[in-house]
Design a protein around this nucleic acid. Sequence first.
DNA 1: CTTTGTTATATAACATGTAATGAACAAGGT
DNA 2: ACCTTGTTCATTACATGTTATATAACAAAG
Lengths: 161, 161
Amino acid sequence: MEDIIRSLGYLTLGSRLKRIGEQLQADTQRMLDGLEVPVQSSQYPLLAALDRLGPLPVGELAQSLGITQPGVTRSVALLTELGLVEVVQSDGDQRRRMVSLTGNGQRLVSRAKRDVWPRIENAVADLCRGLTGPLLEQLSAIEDGLAAAPLERRVKQDAVP
Amino acid sequence: MEDIIRSLGYLTLGSRLKRIGEQLQADTQRMLDGLEVPVQSSQYPLLAALDRLGPLPVGELAQSLGITQPGVTRSVALLTELGLVEVVQSDGDQRRRMVSLTGNGQRLVSRAKRDVWPRIENAVADLCRGLTGPLLEQLSAIEDGLAAAPLERRVKQDAVP
DNA sequence: CTTTGTTATATAACATGTAATGAACAAGGT
DNA sequence: ACCTTGTTCATTACATGTTATATAACAAAG
């Protein structure tokens, strides 16, 4: 069965990148399923941003993640519900709402940084190992690689000694 | 403002691909807005698949697009509503529903193939021109390129002489 | 020819992106 | 002191992907 998105080349590059991204996220999700944490893989960038940059207002969080503000507002509401982040009114400007990690959120990120993220990085690096050449060929190699062995089967057991 | 998704490298490759794909689709949408057709850019792959492969049952359409069957069912309902595709029961197996382009759908695809798709392909090819090297660097170049000049400003006026 | 498993599609519920709009607040000129 | 205007965030409506499940049609076996 011909893969149309692949056949159409540059014309459907957007659809193709989106599709590969979704597949990678789904694979990553399966790697995370072992943890007892009820957080989707797509929420980790937000947590990582707070961990890396410290408390941020909603708008700057959106900028640093490259998504729009309503998306951040919704994710923050979800993660607040889960007790992983909290929101306080800014001291100066009453419009700004500073988002920060809670203790639980900080603990989750620390654990992920130690136990999980290195595995994911290794698995993706393994998937992309040796890739060179034109973009479309690299994408085909990634698609073929994921079909042959999804991320969760690319974890090196000695990745975190 | 640091771009977290970009900074995290392989760890967030999935989010990054998805984000670039969405941006490309949005740019493409703006290139299509000149047409009077109320079809989102994301629907074109389905139309292209029918044009290229002929009438297909829902399941095979899903396979050829690399998405799941419920997604196809919904898109087919939408495009049927717009009069661009139609569904007939298969002759043999009454479970299968063959999807095909209507006259209007065929005309839309023909027009797109002649007037619009070459421009999009050219614009994306221009964006990706000269890209080589590791995947993450190519992605950065694409992000920078889109920020510098979105697709709609990359259309060569003589692309379709 | 009924029962039982499989296949094809539809439907519902959810996730997560977008754009558009409105409310609250800040800031500046008169 | 007030308007006006811009900024920040929440809310709503939509698009489009997913998974899980229901339903209908077919196939195979007694």
